[in-house]
Design a protein around this nucleic acid. Structure first.
Lengths: 136, 136
DNA sequence: CAGTATCCGACACGATACTG
DNA sequence: CAGTATCGTGTCGGATACTG
């Protein structure tokens, strides 16, 4: 496999430079990104509206509307999320997982469960590391 | 529920300043980070020296020594990677997976394989999305 | 060889304000 | 309600030079 992003910057995914870089890297980064993880897991349970996602995620992390919108667009563009905008007023938009997105979300969910199971162990490790390094 | 992040009312974090985010999020983010993914997958195969990792990863992505060192330190601190520095000159340092790191790496590897399998499908989706949106 | 230190640009991200 | 536009800040990340 190959991977790489040209230039600096973390997620300059929007610029499509396939030169020397494996596309699978971008797929990975999109589904494992900070907010995509939380969105996918929520959509695994049921479809959500924009505001539902915003409130649900805000309860644990301060996602901004900008980032929620951007992440949803990325996921939609990649084919992980289906956007269903009903032509009514006020607007009503439902986000749901595609089959592809469901596959991704399942894996992300397993990783999230694992992270949750191991987090105390990791925290212990960090404390020991910091203690050994001496941080007064 | 409470999958990706610790329980809902997890705001009680008087320890370190996690920015109000759940600890399991940090675990996730460390193992799914840009360079950690590549490092973990390589260490799954066998232990590597610093320079080996640098060269191996540079061949596909331009990781700098700074980021390689920083990522390795993070992984070591979290207890995913074991650092074995032999007291010789010139220095000889081996990095290997801990048992915990092995668990993480296996999952990351599965995700990477899945990403590789689906990347063409994702690319197709992106093309269709861009075409529909009209990207000049 | 295995890092560390410094400079600096690029982007992620949150907060806020605004639109359809 | 569902976004977009704009701004300021923090962090990521590469390049380069230096140390043990």
């Amino acid at each position: 496999m190959a991977v790489s992003t040209a230039g600096a910057g973390t997620a300059a995914d929007e610029n499509v430079d396939t030169g020397g870089m494996c596309p699978s890297r971008l797929v990975m980064e999109h589904v494992t990104s900070r907010w995509a993880v939380l969105i996918l897991i929520r959509l695994l349970e049921r479809p959500h509206r924009f505001g539902e996602l915003r409130r649900s995620i805000r309860s644990i992390g301060q996602i901004s509307e900008k980032m929620l919108a951007r992440t949803l667009q990325t996921l939609e563009r990649d084919g992980f999320v289906h956007r269903d905008a009903k032509p009514v007023v006020p607007p009503h938009v439902d986000y749901s997982l595609t089959e592809l997105g469901h596959e991704a979300a399942e894996q992300i969910r397993m990783l999230a469960l694992w992270s949750h199971d191991r987090m105390h162990q990791v925290q212990k490790s960090r404390e020991m590391y910091d203690a050994a390094k001496g941080r007064p």
